[in-house]
Each structure stands twice: as structure tokens, then as C-alpha cells.
Amino acid sequence: MVSSAPLDIDDRFGEPPAAPAWLEISAPATIPVRPLPATLDDSGTAYVLVMQPAFDLVRQAVGQLAGLLVLAAAGGKSAAGHPMLAPAADALAQAAETIHSVRVPASARHHHRHLVAAERLALESVALARRIAGPDDTTAMDRALGALRAAHRHLLWATNALPGFEIVALGQSCCAEHARSAGATPT
């Protein structure tokens, strides 16, 4: 289990930015598909292996935040007091330990840049979610959701920068097990 030790995000960020427009600028809506490197050098491979759990923690936190924002938007439990906020913050703290301490080889710089941005924006979304007064607090909701969307876009970019990272397991979906059919005989 991920522990739920509280992390005081507010102390780290102070007041939220007035507008998250810059976040959107750095996370374009369209994801350019570029070919992944055919091979990774040893340092690149080591980076992938170390960073996979950190990536999954950021994805996990983004998912938790998205879920609690749905509940808040639907008029249920308030986002500010939702018990999922603490585990999300804790997951991001755990991810940050790896993200900010790992040695980043040249082949992984692009990926790392997006993962750093995703982690930072998700943290910001946590802080902003704590300021949502209720379902009618549309300004605070917009800010929290804007930061979260930008974090998600950076995660998508990261999946496109190096192999070994998935924001959604396409191969696990009901209709997408096809790649595992190698060698099967058509009927």
C-alpha cells in the first residue's frame, strides 16, 4: 500500500498562480508521434528501469486527482477534504525522490523533462484542489483541472519519448490483445 503520510504542499507552493495559461503552452493538445529509438544504450536502459515506478506513481496520482475532481464536480464529497488527496500527494512525493535524483543520460533528457513537468503540475493540482470551496467554486476547479490536464499531457508526451512507459495499457484492453497473437494461425 502507498502510505498516506500528509505532505504540506501549500507550504511548498504558497498561493496558486492567477492563471494556468503557461501550463497549456508547455503542454500542447496535439501529441506529435515520433519514432522511438530503435535501441537504447546502457545508461538509457538503466534510466528506464529506474524511472518506471516513478512514472507510474505520477500516473497514479493524476488518476486519483481526476477521480476526486469528478466526485467534487458531481456535487459529492468536496475535493478539498477528500481522503484521496493525501495519498496522491504522497505518491508524488515518492516519485519526486526518484525523478529529481536520477542520473539522466542524454538519450533520456526529453523524457525526463516531460516527467518533471508532469510531477510538478500534478503537485500544483493537489494544492489547487485543496482550495476548491465546493462544487460551485468554478474558478478553483478550473485551475485544478487545468494543471491536471497539463500534467496528463506531459505524461502522454513522456510515453512518446522513450519505450517502457504507458499511461494506459493499450494491450490490456478488452479489444487490444492483438499484439500477443504473434505466431497464431489465422482461422
Binding site: Q60, A66, H152, Q172, C174
Partner: peptide, 19 residues
């Protein structure tokens, strides 16, 4: 909220869809 060993359980849902 489970350990990442359980990630198979949630990996076919995209957080972006939840957003």
C-alpha cells in the same frame, strides 16, 4: 491506492478519460 504491484487492475482506464 494499492501498491504498484496491482497496477494491472487500473491500467486499462486512462486518467484523461476520467478528466
Amino acid at each position: 491506492s494499492l501498491h504498484r504491484r496491482f497496477r494491472w487492475l487500473n491500467s486499462a482506464t486512462d486518467p484523461g478519460d476520467i478528466m
